[in-house]
Design a binder for these strands. Structure first.
Lengths: 216, 216
DNA sequence: AGGGCCAATTCGTGATCACATTCGCGCCAT
DNA sequence: ATGGCGCGAATGTGATCACGAATTGGCCCT
């Protein structure tokens, strides 16, 4: 090829761009569990060589977003029930902590924004849009947790979401739910009331209910 | 070069070997905070080209074991006080959970092994060997947590240890402690007694005490 | 008709190279 | 003596190639 008309984007290294795009796809559940990817395929999709694709994939494997077969092939993970339970337990551990830390900093403007996002969540539920639902749901949680000023803990929580992404989409698509997000309303009520125990419980319940859908 | 007399190790890809070696060095605190690494330097050290070195580094950056400057340079992280507090909070969240899960599976042989490891910890304290102390301390915790049968949670805990590695070594080296690990004895006592609340408290205290040494 | 075997294709791995950027160090001017 | 400037060395990035292993699909044998 050797065209290279693209000198550099300072923050936009090619591998970074590929990484972000794949990460978003995986976290939003746009890839089904067990989907297999190839370095050359990724490279062609993003118009780069294998090298940046390899680095992006390596990063995602390190985060648990992709699985590496013994021969080096990569695919989205197919989670066992035990692993799903573990990841749900991690959400139940991390997210109440983030909520508690965010609570004293949650002023009215934040709650308004959360309610707007929550409205979007309801729309996605009504529209039966699994990927849209996941995206809005994550935005709801992330918007709240960003106020916790705890980037290391938030990064851990996002890693868990990432690992759950493909499986969550498959689960949500399988059982077409019509319920609006009840727990989100509880979260908002507890935020308004400044009720920390209630907030922790609501967040914990919301995080764990994804696990209930596993019982089949 | 083009020698390549080394066909393949099935599990021993070069980048894997480099990754494991660097990871161990970082987790054991053999690299001081702020140490800068170069891809060519790593490659020369392990007798590989830049490619496997790059992949290993990319993985470690994704795990938070190394930091990436804006120009792509990598170095061991220099943690802020806030970040150390966050990581200590993560240990305080994750490790009691792992201990609780390990408790019903902790039979006598395991406790014996933990006591042997703990003896090794005391030796390292007496010897003022910071790296050796960290290594033994981690082995103590990992040996216990392996019984929890919770690989995802354990992986998260190890990621936290990894991020704390260089800083821990610097802290331990700075204040030469002579105390034997009191909290480890409490952990062992709670294990023997089957005392879950006591075990959780002892583990939590042990995890957090690394934070106390930050107050300077 | 079904299953196992072989070959062609596909794929990951690692090496090497070109290139732009960045870092570091010494020199010169003030 | 000191501070800024510039040039050379060093570094990360991405492309490409060679190679061996693994996968896949078709063909033949039973």
């Amino acid at each position: 090829m050797m065209i290279s008309p693209r000198p550099v984007d300072l923050t936009g290294a090619a591998h970074e761009r590929v990484y972000r795009a794949l990460r978003t796809q995986i976290m939003h559940g746009e890839l089904p569990p067990g989907e297999s990817l190839t370095l050359r395929g990724i490279g062609k999709q993003f118009e780069v060589s294998m090298t940046p694709a390899r680095e992006a994939v390596r990063r995602l494997v390190a985060e648990g977003a992709l699985t590496l077969s013994s021969s080096g092939r990569v695919s989205t993970p197919e989670l066992s029930n035990d692993r799903i339970e573990e990841l749900a337990a991690l959400r139940a551990l991390l997210e109440p902590e983030l909520a508690t830390r965010a609570l004293p900093r949650a002023h009215l403007a934040l709650i308004d924004r959360l309610e707007a996002i929550n409205h979007g969540v309801s729309q996605m539920v009504a529209r039966q849009d699994a990927t849209g639902y996941i995206r809005m749901n994550l935005e709801f949680h992330r918007t709240l947790y960003l106020r916790a000023q705890a980037p290391a803990i938030l990064a851990m929580a996002e890693t868990v979401w990432l690992q759950l992404g493909p499986t969550m989409a498959a689960l949500y698509a399988r059982l077409n739910r019509t319920e609006p997000p009840h727990n989100h309303k509880l979260i908002l009520a507890a935020l308004k009331a400044g009720d920390d125990p209630g907030l922790r419980l609501a967040v914990r319940t919301d995080a764990i209910q994804g696990l209930r859908m596993l019982r089949n």
